[in-house]
Amino acid sequence: MNVIFYIAAIIAIIATALVITGKNAVHALLYLIVSLLAISLIFFLLGAPFIAALEVIVYAGAIMVLFVFVIMMLNLGKAWEKTERSWFSAKAWIGPGILCIILLAELIMVFCSSAIPSGSTGVIGPRRVGVALFGPYVLGVELTAMLLMAGIVGAYHIGREKKRQYHRYLQNDEEKEGGL
């Protein structure tokens, strides 16, 4: 079982690295799905089968489909791939890369120095999660529902194609320019 965890972890890290270094948006998205599926496997190994299923259904299913639709609507062609390549300079990467490596070293130090109790892991099924979700955390569920509603309304309002409306004065100006 441990070997499966290591393999899934390595696949997740490699796929994520390929996402952030990718040039074609669709390829990067496919790598992101691979990474999410690997993390889903890790959730299953951690004894969270419900979360593993949610990760596949909601993340790899619904959210990624949204991304695919938007990439299709944007219709970035070959020209964009060339532009991405020209942006891909070592100068842009070196600063954040070094800072993040320092941060990672600090995190490793913190993890290794702190004593974490090694409790026995077991499966926490959907039943216990549901009882917790609709017992003490029911207020959070209500707030999440409001958040999702705000997301729907916001996405509809922002994503709508608005007709550009000019003031009468400017409209006349435009007509004049068009006439000239």
């Binding site: 990760e55 993340y59 955390y137």
Partner: peptide, 20 residues
């Protein structure tokens, strides 16, 4: 796991608005 579900819902709302 409860917290993960909240994060999931937040990510879904964030992505829909962000993509718009």
């Amino acid at each position: 796991q409860v917290m993960f579900i909240f994060i999931l819902a937040m990510a879904a709302a964030e992505v829909s608005v962000g993509l718009a």
